[in-house]
Each structure stands twice: as C-alpha cells, then as structure tokens.
C-alpha cells in the first residue's frame, strides 16, 4: 500500500498538514529555535543567522542585511503562528519550508560540520533531529513543486 503524504496539496491550492501531535511539537521547537536565534544575541545559532551577506566585500550593505533579517524572522514567526493549523496557504507553507531549512542548516553549521562536508562528530540525538527535519523538508517540498 502506498504511503500517504504528510503534506498533500488540495485542489484549492492549500497544503494539508497530516502530522501527529509529536511531529507538530518537534516542528514547533525547531521554529522556536529560529525565532530565538534571531532575537537572542547569546543563542548558539545567532551568529549563523546573522552571518555576512557578501564575504567578497569589505562591508555588507546594511539595508540588505536588514532585509534578510526581517524576512527570516517574519517567516519563522508566521510558521510558528500556524504550526497547529490543519491546512496552510502557499505563503504559510513556504514559511514552514524556509524556517525548517534554516533550522536544519543551523544544526549543522553550529557543529562546524559544514566545513567537513560530513556529519561525523554530531551526537546521536542531534543527528536524529537532522534526519527528521530532512524527511519533513523532503515531504513538504513535494507539496510545493
């Protein structure tokens, strides 16, 4: 029997969310981490959320930096606000995808695994979160194709 999709696309364009309470709680935690990383300068992800825009330039354009910061934060807040919804608009679904992707990336960047191009050295609990995020992103991407 075919496995049913976690995020089926409805005819009206909305994206249904067929997640159990545990999965929603997991996603909410990830979204909250991105929101916190933006607001809290002490958060371990903060410096990665605010990484340089353009490393090839001496200084970044402050307006571009602000634009990125605002868009990332508003996506994360929108995602968090809608985490209990049964169906999402396309804008909301994209906010989920971008926020989960930011969370996924920060899990890895914060461990320095980006440079190694490998996940060696990441503990089992965090590796499990990374795998879960990858699976959810893979499923959500199908709905937005």
């Amino acid at each position: 029997m075919a496995r049913s999709r976690l995020f089926p696309r409805r005819r009206d364009g909305h994206v249904e969310v067929k997640l159990n309470g545990h999965a929603r709680e997991f996603i909410a935690q990830q979204m909250q981490k991105v929101v916190d990383a933006d607001h809290d300068a002490q958060h371990p992800w903060h410096s990665h959320v605010h990484s340089p825009m353009n490393p090839s330039a001496d200084t970044d354009d402050p307006l571009r930096v602000l634009q990125r910061q605002k868009e990332t934060a508003s996506n994360a807040e929108l995602a968090l606000l809608t985490v209990k919804e049964e169906q999402l608009t396309l804008v909301e679904a994209w906010a989920w995808l971008t926020t989960m992707q930011i969370a996924l990336r920060n899990h890895v960047v914060a461990r320095g695994a980006f440079e190694n191009d490998s996940l060696e050295g990441i503990d089992e609990a965090e590796l499990s979160e990374i795998r879960d995020l990858q699976y959810l992103l893979f499923e959500l991407a199908k709905a937005l194709e």
């Binding site: 992707q101 990336r105 890895v108 992103l137 893979f138």
Partner: peptide, 17 residues
C-alpha cells in the same frame, strides 16, 4: 555552495521559485 544536509528537492524547488 554545497552542504551535507539540504535535501536535493529543496534546492531545486528554491531555484525554481
């Protein structure tokens, strides 16, 4: 740039968007 975790369909989707 490549990274070791982002699912391939997500990258394709973002390029399209």
């Amino acid at each position: 740039w490549n990274d070791p975790v982002t699912p391939m369909p997500v990258v394709t989707l973002v390029f399209k968007k």
